[in-house]
Computed example of a mutant assay.
Amino acid sequence: MSSSPQIQARTGLFARVLGPYLIVAALTMVARASYMSTLLAQFDADSVWPWVTGAFVLPMGLVVIVLHPYWRGAAATIVSLLGWLTAFKGLALMAFPHAYLSMGHNAVGVAPWWQVGTVIVALVGLYLTVIGWIPAASQPISRGAARPPRDLPRAA
Protein backbone atom coordinates (compact mmCIF):
# COMPACT_ATOMS: atom_id res chain seq x y z
CA MET A 1 0.00 0.00 0.00
CA SER A 2 1.19 3.53 -0.68
CA SER A 3 2.50 5.54 2.21
CA SER A 4 1.08 8.90 3.16
CA PRO A 5 3.97 10.94 1.68
CA GLN A 6 3.51 9.13 -1.65
CA ILE A 7 -0.21 9.92 -1.63
CA GLN A 8 0.50 13.56 -0.84
CA ALA A 9 3.07 13.72 -3.62
CA ARG A 10 0.63 12.26 -6.14
CA THR A 11 -2.10 14.66 -5.03
CA GLY A 12 0.38 17.51 -5.37
CA LEU A 13 1.32 16.46 -8.90
CA PHE A 14 -2.31 16.32 -10.00
CA ALA A 15 -2.96 19.64 -8.25
CA ARG A 16 -0.08 21.20 -10.23
CA VAL A 17 -1.84 20.28 -13.47
CA LEU A 18 -5.50 20.66 -12.57
CA GLY A 19 -5.16 23.90 -10.60
CA PRO A 20 -3.73 26.11 -13.36
CA TYR A 21 -6.02 24.45 -15.93
CA LEU A 22 -9.13 25.29 -13.88
CA ILE A 23 -7.96 28.88 -13.41
CA VAL A 24 -7.28 29.42 -17.12
CA ALA A 25 -10.49 27.69 -18.23
CA ALA A 26 -12.67 29.58 -15.75
CA LEU A 27 -11.13 33.00 -16.36
CA THR A 28 -11.38 32.68 -20.13
CA MET A 29 -15.02 31.60 -19.81
CA VAL A 30 -15.83 34.63 -17.67
CA ALA A 31 -13.80 36.99 -19.88
CA ARG A 32 -15.53 35.67 -23.01
CA ALA A 33 -18.99 35.29 -21.49
CA SER A 34 -20.74 36.89 -24.46
CA TYR A 35 -19.06 34.37 -26.78
CA MET A 36 -20.08 31.24 -24.84
CA SER A 37 -23.50 30.84 -26.50
CA THR A 38 -21.93 31.10 -29.95
CA LEU A 39 -19.19 28.66 -28.99
CA LEU A 40 -21.70 26.10 -27.72
CA ALA A 41 -23.89 26.49 -30.81
CA GLN A 42 -20.95 25.96 -33.17
CA PHE A 43 -19.70 23.01 -31.10
CA ASP A 44 -23.17 21.43 -31.22
CA ALA A 45 -23.62 22.09 -34.97
CA ASP A 46 -21.31 19.25 -36.05
CA SER A 47 -21.92 15.93 -34.30
CA VAL A 48 -18.32 14.81 -34.73
CA TRP A 49 -16.90 17.45 -32.32
CA PRO A 50 -18.67 16.31 -29.16
CA TRP A 51 -17.71 12.69 -29.87
CA VAL A 52 -14.05 13.48 -30.59
CA THR A 53 -13.86 15.75 -27.57
CA GLY A 54 -15.43 13.07 -25.39
CA ALA A 55 -12.97 10.51 -26.78
CA PHE A 56 -10.12 12.66 -25.46
CA VAL A 57 -11.76 13.77 -22.21
CA LEU A 58 -12.86 10.29 -21.06
CA PRO A 59 -9.32 8.81 -20.94
CA MET A 60 -8.08 11.90 -19.08
CA GLY A 61 -10.67 11.33 -16.38
CA LEU A 62 -9.90 7.61 -16.28
CA VAL A 63 -6.19 8.36 -15.78
CA VAL A 64 -6.99 10.47 -12.72
CA ILE A 65 -9.39 7.82 -11.39
CA VAL A 66 -6.82 5.03 -11.77
CA LEU A 67 -3.77 6.94 -10.54
CA HIS A 68 -5.48 8.88 -7.74
CA PRO A 69 -8.01 6.76 -5.81
CA TYR A 70 -7.54 8.83 -2.64
CA TRP A 71 -10.32 10.68 -0.81
CA ARG A 72 -8.67 11.85 2.44
CA GLY A 73 -8.15 15.56 2.76
CA ALA A 74 -9.62 18.46 0.82
CA ALA A 75 -7.08 18.49 -2.02
CA ALA A 76 -7.18 14.71 -2.52
CA THR A 77 -10.98 14.73 -2.53
CA ILE A 78 -11.08 17.55 -5.09
CA VAL A 79 -8.57 15.79 -7.36
CA SER A 80 -10.47 12.49 -7.20
CA LEU A 81 -13.81 14.21 -7.71
CA LEU A 82 -12.44 16.06 -10.75
CA GLY A 83 -11.28 12.75 -12.18
CA TRP A 84 -14.75 11.25 -11.86
CA LEU A 85 -16.46 14.38 -13.20
CA THR A 86 -14.08 14.45 -16.17
CA ALA A 87 -14.78 10.80 -16.95
CA PHE A 88 -18.54 11.39 -16.74
CA LYS A 89 -18.18 14.44 -18.98
CA GLY A 90 -16.30 12.42 -21.58
CA LEU A 91 -18.90 9.66 -21.43
CA ALA A 92 -21.76 12.17 -21.71
CA LEU A 93 -20.14 13.89 -24.71
CA MET A 94 -19.74 10.55 -26.48
CA ALA A 95 -23.02 8.87 -25.54
CA PHE A 96 -25.48 11.73 -24.91
CA PRO A 97 -24.07 14.80 -26.68
CA HIS A 98 -27.37 16.61 -27.28
CA ALA A 99 -28.57 16.19 -23.69
CA TYR A 100 -25.19 17.30 -22.32
CA LEU A 101 -24.93 20.31 -24.62
CA SER A 102 -28.55 21.36 -24.00
CA MET A 103 -27.66 21.55 -20.28
CA GLY A 104 -24.76 23.80 -21.29
CA HIS A 105 -27.08 26.01 -23.34
CA ASN A 106 -29.50 26.24 -20.41
CA ALA A 107 -26.68 27.11 -18.00
CA VAL A 108 -25.34 29.87 -20.25
CA GLY A 109 -28.90 31.20 -20.54
CA VAL A 110 -28.89 32.09 -16.84
CA ALA A 111 -25.67 34.09 -17.09
CA PRO A 112 -25.20 35.30 -13.51
CA TRP A 113 -25.42 31.79 -12.07
CA TRP A 114 -22.99 30.05 -14.41
CA GLN A 115 -20.60 32.97 -13.99
CA VAL A 116 -20.75 32.56 -10.20
CA GLY A 117 -20.13 28.84 -10.66
CA THR A 118 -17.21 29.60 -12.95
CA VAL A 119 -15.67 31.92 -10.35
CA ILE A 120 -16.01 29.11 -7.79
CA VAL A 121 -14.19 26.79 -10.22
CA ALA A 122 -11.42 29.42 -10.53
CA LEU A 123 -11.12 29.56 -6.73
CA VAL A 124 -10.87 25.75 -6.56
CA GLY A 125 -8.17 26.00 -9.23
CA LEU A 126 -6.33 28.61 -7.18
CA TYR A 127 -6.51 26.34 -4.12
CA LEU A 128 -5.11 23.38 -6.07
CA THR A 129 -2.39 25.56 -7.59
CA VAL A 130 -1.29 26.69 -4.14
CA ILE A 131 -1.37 23.10 -2.83
CA GLY A 132 0.59 21.84 -5.82
CA TRP A 133 3.16 24.56 -6.38
CA ILE A 134 3.85 26.21 -3.03
CA PRO A 135 5.85 23.96 -0.70
CA ALA A 136 4.26 23.38 2.66
CA ALA A 137 6.03 25.43 5.30
CA SER A 138 4.85 23.05 7.98
CA GLN A 139 6.66 20.00 6.58
CA PRO A 140 9.46 19.08 8.98
CA ILE A 141 12.89 18.33 7.56
CA SER A 142 13.87 14.81 8.52
CA ARG A 143 17.18 14.36 10.31
CA GLY A 144 18.16 11.53 8.02
CA ALA A 145 17.86 13.65 4.88
CA ALA A 146 20.98 14.21 2.87
CA ARG A 147 22.53 17.59 3.33
CA PRO A 148 23.01 19.81 0.31
CA PRO A 149 26.57 19.86 -1.02
CA ARG A 150 28.81 22.62 0.28
CA ASP A 151 30.34 25.10 -2.09
CA LEU A 152 33.94 24.17 -2.64
CA PRO A 153 36.63 26.78 -3.06
CA ARG A 154 37.57 27.47 -6.65
CA ALA A 155 40.92 26.32 -7.89
CA ALA A 156 43.07 28.91 -9.58
Rank of each mutant, 00 (worst) to 15 (best):
M1L: 12
M1P: 08
S2W: 13
S4I: 13
S4H: 14
S4M: 13
P5F: 09
I7Q: 06
F14V: 02
L18K: 11
G19W: 08
Y21G: 09
Y21K: 12
L22H: 00
L22I: 11
I23L: 05
A26H: 02
L27R: 10
T28P: 10
M29K: 11
M29P: 12
V30A: 06
A31L: 11
R32P: 05
A33R: 02
Y35G: 12
S37E: 13
A45G: 12
A45S: 15
S47L: 12
W51Y: 14
G54P: 01
F56H: 10
V57K: 06
V57G: 05
P59Y: 01
G61I: 03
G61C: 01
L62P: 00
L62M: 01
L67S: 14
P69I: 04
Y70M: 04
G73T: 02
G73R: 05
A74N: 11
A76V: 06
A76Y: 14
I78F: 05
V79Y: 04
S80R: 02
S80Y: 01
G83H: 03
T86H: 01
A87D: 00
F88C: 04
L91H: 00
A92I: 06
A92Q: 00
A99P: 05
A99F: 09
Y100P: 04
M103I: 09
G104Y: 03
G109I: 00
P112G: 02
W113C: 13
Q115D: 06
V116P: 08
G117Y: 01
V119C: 13
I120T: 02
V124I: 08
G125H: 06
L126H: 04
L128H: 09
P135H: 15
S138W: 13
R143Y: 11
G144R: 14
A145V: 09
P149W: 03
P149C: 02
P149H: 06
R150L: 05
L152I: 01
A155Y: 10
